[in-house]
């Protein structure tokens, strides 16, 4: 587990980030830093801006004010194409509802991420099989999302997120749509990933998940950082 004072390079720096949707303020000047190899959990009540914060870092949305710098790149100032390339090469996203493509098999869902970078189909599929194998769902590689269990779908989604070896793995309520057993398995998975050096930002309501996987907790309320604490990992 890599902690704040580990001395690793800062990979994410948010400085006074604001986000407004019309009259509604989702983020009201958030500043924080995340170092390489850290596992950070962002927690807070519904509507506090957790997912918005994650979207800013992932380059899925642009801040209204302030700056989001990831690996030295100011994400808010990137054009659409540059942002797409940034997401493709640097970010791996895991969603609460998995967001797998229904018409593609588990294997092709995972391989798709590499194919978008121009990797030939055969090579992409080979790596996808390896990842699915590592995540314990290789035997389900030819199944389609509709016939997979929730846990299996999320494992496939994690494999897809890892396909391009991203610098940052962002997970938005990764266990929110899973039963407790499947949730446990996903937690273990994320923990394992962080332990091998994967930087992880986790948005969750689940304090147990945060304690289990993250080394640092950032608390958000009304679009502001209201607290920050180092966590003991409960392996």
């Amino acid at each position: 587990m890599v902690t704040e004072d580990s001395g690793n390079e800062i990979v994410v720096r948010l400085d006074g980030v604001r986000k407004e949707y019309g009259e509604t303020t989702a983020l009201a000047g958030v500043s924080l830093e995340i170092r390489a190899g850290e596992a950070v959990a962002v927690m807070g009540p519904s509507g506090c801006g957790k997912s918005t914060l994650l979207n800013m870092i992932a380059g899925l949305d642009r801040p209204t004010g302030g700056s989001v710098v990831v690996h030295g790149e100011n994400v808010g100032e990137c054009g659409e194409k540059r942002l797409a390339l940034y997401r493709r090469h640097r970010i791996g996203m895991i969603f609460q509802f998995f967001n797998l493509i229904d018409d593609l098999s588990a294997l092709d869902n995972v391989a798709l991420a590499a194919q978008l970078t121009g990797t030939p189909a055969r090579q992409a599929r080979r790596r996808a099989v390896e990842l699915l194998d590592e995540l314990g769902v290789a035997d389900r590689r030819n199944a389609y999302p509709a016939v997979l269990s929730g846990g299996e779908r999320q494992r496939v989604a994690v494999a897809r997120a890892l396909m391009n070896r991203p610098a940052l793995l962002l997970a938005d309520e990764p266990t929110g749509a899973l039963d407790s057993r499947a949730g446990e398995q996903v937690m273990d998975l994320l923990l394992d990933l962080n332990q091998i050096g994967q930087t992880l930002i986790l948005v969750t309501h689940d304090a147990r998940l945060a304690r289990r996987c993250a080394g640092r907790l950032i608390e958000l309320a009304d679009g502001r950082v209201t607290g920050e604490q180092a966590l003991e990992v409960s392996a």
């Binding site: 493709r88 970010i91 797998l100 493509i101 798709l112 991420a113 978008l116």
Partner: peptide, 8 residues
């Protein structure tokens, strides 16, 4: 989803 994966 595709755009989040880096589709331009």
């Amino acid at each position: 989803t595709l755009k989040s994966m880096g589709m331009t």
